[in-house]
C-alpha cells in the first residue's frame, strides 16, 4: 500500500445543521493520497453526513473542506469538478432502474467525460470484468441481486476514473451471503492504491484493509488511530462502549 505524503482531503472545523439539530460539531481531519480510511460509529453519529459533505451532497454551513486543492463552496464549477474526481457508492445502490447495467456505467463517461460510445462501452466491460459480472451487462438493475447491484454501482463510480472513492455503508442493505462479494471488490480496489473513505460496520474489513480508523460519535471524531490500536487498545469511554456492543 502506497500512502503518499500528499494531503488530498483537508477538513477544518466542519459544522452542519439539519434544522435545529446539529449533525456535525466541527470535524477536523486530513486524508492522504492512497490512504484507506474507515469511519465507524453508532447510527446518527454524523458519519454519513460527513462523507456526503465531501462531495457536497450535503452543504456544510461552517468550516472548510478542501478536496484535491479545490475548496467546497457554492460555486457550481468547483462542485462539478470535484464530483467527477470523487466516486461514491451508496447504501441503497441507487442504480438507474430504466437503464441497462452497461448504460448505467457508460452514462457519465459519455455525458461528462465526452468519451465515444465504443470507447466507453469497452471500458465499461473491463470494469464489469473487474467486479466479476461481465455476463450481466445487458440486464436491467431490477433483474440483479443486491450484491450484483452494489458491484455494478462500484463499477459505475470507477468508470469516471476517480481519484477518491467514498463508500456510504455499502454492505448494510445486503443479505449476509452477498456481503463478501462486495467486500472482495472493495479490497481489490484498496490494494490497487485508490484513496478510499469507507463508512461501514464491517469490523473485519476495517481491520484488514484500513490504514486509519475514525470513530465518530455525536457529530465529531472521538478517536482515531491505526486499526491495531483501535481494536486492541481503545482509549475513549465511548469507543470502548461502542466496541463492546458491536464485537
Amino acid at each position: 500500500m502506497a500512502v503518499s505524503d500528499k494531503d488530498i482531503i483537508v477538513c477544518e472545523g466542519v459544522k452542519k445543521w439539519f434544522g435545529d439539530f446539529q449533525a456535525l460539531k466541527g470535524v477536523t481531519t486530513t486524508v492522504k493520497e492512497g490512504e484507506v480510511v474507515v469511519i465507524i460509529g453508532p447510527s446518527g453519529s454524523g458519519k454519513s453526513t460527513f462523507i456526503r459533505c465531501i462531495n457536497r451532497l450535503e452543504q456544510h454551513q461552517e468550516g472548510v473542506i478542501v478536496v484535491d486543492g479545490v475548496e467546497m463552496t457554492n460555486d457550481v464549477r468547483n462542485i462539478e469538478k470535484i464530483r467527477s474526481e470523487v466516486g461514491m457508492v451508496f447504501q441503497q445502490f441507487n442504480l438507474f432502474p430504466h437503464l441497462t447495467v452497461l448504460d448505467n456505467i457508460t452514462l457519465a463517461p459519455l455525458w461528462v467525460r465526452k468519451r465515444t460510445k465504443t470507447d466507453a462501452q469497452e471500458r465499461g466491460m473491463q470494469l464489469l470484468n473487474r467486479v466479476g459480472i461481465p455476463e450481466q451487462a445487458e440486464k436491467y438493475p431490477g433483474q440483479l441481486s443486491g450484491g450484483q447491484q452494489q458491484r455494478v454501482a462500484i463499477a459505475r463510480a470507477l468508470a469516471m476514473e476517480p481519484r477518491i472513492m467514498l463508500f456510504d455503508e455499502p454492505t448494510s442493505a445486503l443479505d449476509p451471503e452477498m456481503i463478501k462479494e462486495v467486500l472482495d471488490a472493495m479490497k481489490e480496489l484498496a490494494r490497487s492504491g485508490m484513496t478510499m473513505i469507507v463508512v461501514t460496520h464491517e469490523m473485519g474489513f476495517a481491520r484488514e484493509v484500513a490504514d486509519r480508523v475514525l470513530f465518530f460519535d455525536y457529530g465529531t471524531i472521538v478517536e482515531e488511530g491505526t486499526p491495531e490500536h483501535f481494536f486492541t487498545n481503545p482509549q475513549h469511554d465511548r469507543t470502548k462502549l461502542f466496541l463492546s456492543q458491536i464485537l
Binding site: 445543521w17 466541527g26 492522504k32 454551513q61 465529531t220 471524531i221 482515531e224 491505526t226 482509549q235 475513549h236
Partner: peptide, 22 residues
Amino acid sequence: MSDDTFVVHTEEAELPPEPPPH
C-alpha cells in the same frame, strides 16, 4: 501519519450542540 499515533479528541466530543445560524 505514522503507525503508532492515535488521537483522542476529548474536548470536541463533549461540546454541547450549538444553535444553528438564524
